[in-house]
Design a protein around this nucleic acid. Structure first.
Lengths: 79, 79
DNA sequence: CGTGTAAGGAATTCTGACACG
DNA sequence: CGTGTAAGGAATTCTGACACG
């Protein structure tokens, strides 16, 4: 499901990561949650998968910048 | 997806119904959202479909009690 | 660089009740 | 019966910053 419907609390629970980590990945332009009028972030299940992947990469020693480049590559290949 | 991850605000947006209506369907035992420690309701996409169905039935003139019975029938048939 | 935390505020959700019909 | 609403409180989320390293 690519619908952005869950708040950061659910994402945190599903990924096991802190809200701080999830917000940071957004700050580094790795994920793009939507916002409600009240500025609350809304994520999709796809975002959850992306976040897990990002965290795995970080654990493997990559920087967010490298992950960003890796995402771009992935994207170009999928075209 | 049967994972209970979205809050009532998202459900309201997806169904076009008010939070009052959604909570009432739970009161009548037609849907069963989960709860966080803080008592916040969490719904799944399946719940969203159920809610739409319930509202359609209500629009068709059925009572919540009849809908409950109809759900039970549906359930027994699926076995 | 990636993440933790305390701080204050704003948005979200909760419950129980009164209202209409 | 099914739904709207005002009320007060509690839980959730937000931002910007300081900290460590």
């Amino acid at each position: 499901m690519e619908k952005k419907v869950m708040n950061i609390g659910s994402v945190s629970e599903l990924t096991g990561l802190s809200e701080r980590q999830i917000r940071y990945y957004e700050e580094r332009k790795l994920i793009f949650p939507e916002r409600t009028r009240g500025k609350t972030r809304k994520y999709s299940f796809e975002d959850v998968e992306k976040i897990k992947e990002i965290h795995q990469k970080l654990t493997d020693g990559f920087t967010t910048f490298e992950i960003k480049q890796w995402q771009a590559k992935k994207w170009s290949k999928s075209i």
